[in-house]
């Protein structure tokens, strides 16, 4: 490798000053391009936020959270701006709550088994594979499943059926994030605990799980946030209701189905409520994401 093989511009003793070459121009253009693409990716999000806020904010008031959906009123009616969707907020919390109640224990226990007791076995790899398949199943199929299993059996649409559909939907996310969190716990903690004479369940309960909890909680919050916005599996499981409902075995209103039902009607006051419900729903999901971020940061 003699110096003659390099171009003259790389000769020994060459200047260290910046020079405009085709390389630096290319580099600058590419930097600009990727920056523009990154901005482009943000545009849909901000456009959506702007649109939902501008349409939904007009109806934001405390009564939204305390009152029932109104009948359709014409735009010049004094009652045009009356009513709210308190029952749908309650219903969203109820269906998502039921879904969490079912899926969180199952998900965490399954993750503990997969990561702590059956790691790298054929059985665990099989379960992992099917968990991934499950997470790819369209949510409406979960709805059909819950419909045939619970709605037909109990002869009633119910929050419970929706909770079940959401639980099946949340399960893969919870299993996957929890198993990852458990596997990320350094193995030297496991050895420290076992070395002190802890049994495997004591090790999991007292060392591994506490160390993994923040990451598990983060996964659960993201799963909940996703479930809260789901509409397809709820339309024909929880159905809808125009009234307050506290009974998990009765049909229940939810924010997402309210948006779906009201947005496609010709009634202006219902359309406005649909926008307001969208805004509330987005706020809830955003809040959940921020909470998840905050928990990660705190670690």
């Amino acid at each position: 490798m003699t110096s003659q093989e390099f171009p003259a511009s790389l000769a020994k003793g060459r200047s260290l000053e910046r020079a405009v070459t085709s390389k630096t121009i290319f580099s600058n253009v590419m930097t600009g391009l990727v920056f523009a693409c990154a901005l482009l990716a943000l545009i849909p999000l901000f456009a959506l936020l702007f649109y939902v806020i501008s349409k939904g904010a007009v109806r934001l008031s405390p009564q939204l959270f305390t009152q029932l959906p109104p009948p359709p009123f014409p735009r010049d009616s004094p009652q045009f701006s009356s009513g709210g969707f308190g029952n749908a907020i309650v219903g969203t919390f109820m269906t998502v709550g039921l879904g969490s109640l079912i899926s969180i224990p199952f998900g965490i226990f399954a993750a503990i088994y997969l990561s702590e007791f059956a790691r790298d076995t054929k059985f665990a790899n099989g379960i992992n594979f099917f968990t991934n398949v499950l997470s790819g199943v369209p949510s409406i199929v979960m709805g059909v499943f819950a419909y045939s299993l619970i709605v037909l059996a109990t002869r009633s649409y119910s929050a419970m059926a929706a909770g079940f559909a959401l639980a099946v939907l949340m399960l893969p996310t919870i299993v996957r994030t929890s198993a990852e969190a458990l596997e990320a716990v350094p193995s030297n903690l496991r050895q420290a605990s076992v070395g002190l004479g802890a049994s495997s369940y004591q090790t999991v309960l007292k060392v591994i799980l506490p160390a993994a909890i923040p990451a598990i909680v983060t996964g659960i919050i993201l799963a909940i946030a996703r479930a809260a916005g789901e509409t397809a599996p709820i339309i024909f499981t929880a159905l809808f209701s125009n009234f307050w409902n506290w009974d998990p075995w009765r049909p229940t209103a939810t924010l997402s189905v309210l948006v779906y039902n009201f947005a496609i009607t010709p009634f202006a006051n219902w359309q406005e409520l649909a926008w307001a419900a969208s805004l509330v729903l987005i706020t809830l999901v955003l809040f959940a994401n921020v909470l998840a971020r905050w928990i990660i940061r705190k670690r």
Partner: peptide, 11 residues
């Protein structure tokens, strides 16, 4: 009992 190469106190 056992003491390891990397100190491994619990968090």
């Amino acid at each position: 009992g056992m003491v390891f190469q990397q100190p491994n106190p619990f968090p």
